[in-house]
Design a protein around this nucleic acid. Structure first.
Lengths: 332, 332
DNA sequence: GAAAATTAGGAATTCGTTTTCCGAACGGAC
DNA sequence: GTCCGTTCGGAAAACGAATTCCTAATTTTC
C-alpha cells in the first residue's frame, strides 16, 4: 500500500496523494508559507490517511534543529539524578523533543567524549546534572546548556538548584511549630555543601532552641544510630532531632526506639530527601523534606526549551523544597 | 579558522585540506573504497588537524543508519530498570551508539506514542524493559528489538531475563551448605511471577529441610517483620529464612533481633536483589542474590547491536544470578 | 607491445525534509 | 482593458555525508 520496502511513507507520497508538490505539503504540515485553508486540510488528511510521520533525519538536516537534547549526568545511578532525568524527559517529550542519555560515571574523559558525540549529533541543547549540590565547572559548547542540581560556577549560566537552606528552615520551623524547644541537627560529612547549608539553616532557625554543635558524620543509618548516643549524653532535655538525610533520620529513630524513647512524644525527628524506601519504612514514618527533584528536572528542561527557542535564561534558580509531614513529628 | 558560523567543520573542508574530493575523504575516513594508504593517511591527518567529527544528521540520512537506539521502559523510576539502562547505555556507547530514553510510565498510550517517535527518528533498534519479570506482549516494529528483564511472550523474539529459579536455588543451597535443616521462605504477592518462581525453587532445593507453606505477602519490611511471628509459632525449630527480597529480609532480621534471636547463629537469613541500601544497612548485612542487572542491560544492548549488524538472536536468554555472601549467613 | 585486468580517485546521485525564491493566477482600481 | 498588489503554490536549492558509478592511469599477461 505504501511505498518503499520498509513501508516508510515520505512526504512525497503525501504530496502526491494530495495533488500538491512536496514543498507545499511541508508547508501545510508545518503551518508555514501561504496556503489556502482548503489545501492545508487536504494535505493533512492525506498525511493522516497514509500515517505519515516526518523522517527525523531529513528534518534535522534541513531545519537545522535535531529536536534532540543531551542529558549528561555524572552519576545516573544516584537516586538524585534519576528523578531529575525523568522530569526532564517528561517535559521534553511534551515539547516533541527526545533525550539522549549520557552517563559519564564521573570521569572527565568520558564527559569530554560525550560532549563531542552530542555535538556531532547536533543536539539542540544539553542538560548537565551531577550527584552533589556543589557547583561544577561549566562545559564549553556552542549550544544552550542548563545545569540541574549541580549548578554552574559561572553565574551567567542557567542553573536550577535545590534550596537547601529553605528546606532545612521549613523542617526546623515545623519542629518549633509543634512546640519543640531543644533541637539538634545530625547530618553528613562537613565537606558536603548540602550538609553545611542545611546545618547552618537549621541552627539559625532553631535559635535559642538549638542544641549544638552540629553533628557531622556520614550519610548512613549507622551514623544516625551512633549520633543518638552522643546527643542524649550532651543534651538530656532533647526533644527534637533534625537530620540531614532520611537515612540518618531512620538510624536516629531506630536507636531512639531501642532506648525506649517514644517518637514523636519524647523526641520528634525529621529527615531530608523524602526517599520513600527510608521515609516510609521508618518506624514511625518520617516527616521529611522533599526536594521535588522531578519538578527540578522538568524546570531545567523547560528552561532549555526556552533557550533553544532563543529566549535564554541566565543565573541560578532555586527550587523550593516541600515539607512532607508524617508520624515522626505528629503527636498522634 | 574553520568555516561556517558555528565553527562546524564539514567533510568538504577536510577534503579540501587533503586535496581530494569529498567522496574520497569519506572513503578514507570510513575505510571503504579503494585508496592508496598514503591518501588515507593524508585525509586522516587533515581530519584530525581540523578536529572533524562527521555530522550525525547527514550521516544518518545517507548511510541509512542513525546510530541511535531507543530504550523504552515502563518504569524507569524502579530500581530494576535503572541498572539495566546504565548497562545498556554503557555497551551502546562502546559501540558508538547513543540511547534515546523513553519512560512510558506504564501507559500503553504513551508507549505507542514513543514507538512512533522512535521510528520517526529511524532508530536502528529498540530495547524494551519493564518493572516485573512477567513476560509482556511484544511491540510491532520494523526494526530489531530486544526485551530485557520482562521478556516477550513471543518465544521467537530476543529476550534477556533473570534466572529467578537459579537465584533462589543458589541461596537455599548455601543455607543447606552451612548446615541448616529447617528453612522457610517469605516473599511477595503470589500474583508476582518472580515471587512464585523463587518460592518454588526454594522449596524444591530445601527438600526435607523445607518448612512450608511459603509465606506470600508484600515486598515490604513490615511484612518481613510480621512473617517472623507466624514462622516462629509454626516452626519452633526454624534455623533459616530465605526471603524473596532484601526488604523482606531486612524486616525479618529486625524482628528476629527484637525477639532476641541471634543472626546467623540461631537463624540465618538470605535476601534477594542485593539492593545495597537494604542489604548493607541491615543488621547484620545480608547475604543476598544479585541479579546482575547491569550485565543484563549490557547483554541486551550487545544482542541488539548484533541484530543491527544483521546477526539477530532469537529466544530467551536467562542471565545467571550471583550469590553475595555476608554476615547474615556467616557463622562468624 | 597490445589487450586485459586492476587500482585510485573524482563526479554525480541519493537520503527526506525544509526553505527560499519565483511565477502564475486572481482581484480590484482607474 | 491595463496596471498593480495579493494570494497561492511550484521549482529548486540547500543541509552533510555516503555511495554508486565511471574514467583515467597503472600494472599485468601473453
Amino acid at each position: 500500500m505504501t511505498s518503499g520496502r520498509t513501508g516508510a511513507v515520505r512526504i512525497t507520497d503525501v504530496a502526491a496523494l494530495a495533488g500538491v508538490s512536496p514543498g507545499t505539503a511541508s508547508k501545510a504540515l508545518n503551518d508555514t508559507g501561504q496556503l489556502r485553508r482548503e489545501t492545508r486540510e487536504r494535505v493533512r488528511r492525506a498525511a493522516e490517511q497514509l500515517g505519515f510521520t516526518p523522517d527525523g533525519r531529513g528534518r534535522a538536516l534541513s531545519s537545522g534543529r535535531s529536536y534532540t537534547v543531551g542529558l549528561i549526568t555524572t552519576d545516573s545511578s544516584g537516586r538524585f539524578s534519576i528523578p531529575i532525568m525523568l522530569g526532564a524527559e517528561d517535559a521534553l517529550s511534551a515539547g516533541e523533543m527526545a533525550l539522549l542519555l549520557c552517563d559519564t560515571r564521573d570521569d572527565p574523559v568520558r564527559e569530554q567524549h560525550y560532549v563531542r558525540t552530542l555535538l556531532a549529533r547536533r543536539v539542540d541543547g544539553i542538560i548537565v546534572t551531577g550527584r552533589r549540590t556543589e557547583p561544577r565547572s561549566p562545559i564549553k559548547v556552542p549550544v544552550p546548556v542548563v545545569y540541574a542540581f549541580s549548578g554552574s560556577t559561572d553565574p551567567a549560566d542557567a542553573s536550577v538548584v535545590v534550596d537547601d537552606r529553605g528546606g532545612a528552615t521549613t523542617a526546623v520551623g515545623h519542629l518549633l511549630d509543634i512546640g519543640r524547644t531543644a533541637i539538634a541537627h545530625v547530618t553528613g560529612p562537613q565537606r558536603h555543601r548540602s550538609a553545611v547549608e542545611r546545618a547552618a539553616a537549621a541552627a539559625d532557625t532553631a535559635g535559642a532552641a538549638f542544641r549544638g554543635p552540629v553533628l557531622y558524620g556520614e550519610w548512613s543509618e549507622r551514623w544516625g544510630r551512633g549520633a543518638v548516643d552522643l546527643l542524649l549524653r550532651a543534651h538530656p532535655d532533647l526533644d527534637a532531632v533534625s537530620c540531614g538525610s532520611d537515612q540518618i533520620a531512620r538510624g536516629v529513630c531506630e536507636r531512639l526506639r531501642e532506648l525506649g524513647r517514644r517518637i514523636p512524644d519524647d523526641v520528634a525527628v525529621t529527615g531530608y530527601d523524602n526517599w520513600d524506601v527510608m521515609a516510609l519504612a521508618c518506624r514511625p514514618p518520617l516527616t521529611t523534606v522533599d526536594m521535588e527533584l522531578e519538578e527540578l528536572g522538568r524546570r531545567a528542561a523547560r528552561m532549555l526549551l526556552d533557550a533553544v527557542a532563543r529566549h535564554p535564561h541566565h543565573g541560578t534558580l532555586e527550587m523550593p523544597a516541600r515539607l512532607v509531614i508524617r508520624a515522626s513529628t505528629l503527636p498522634d
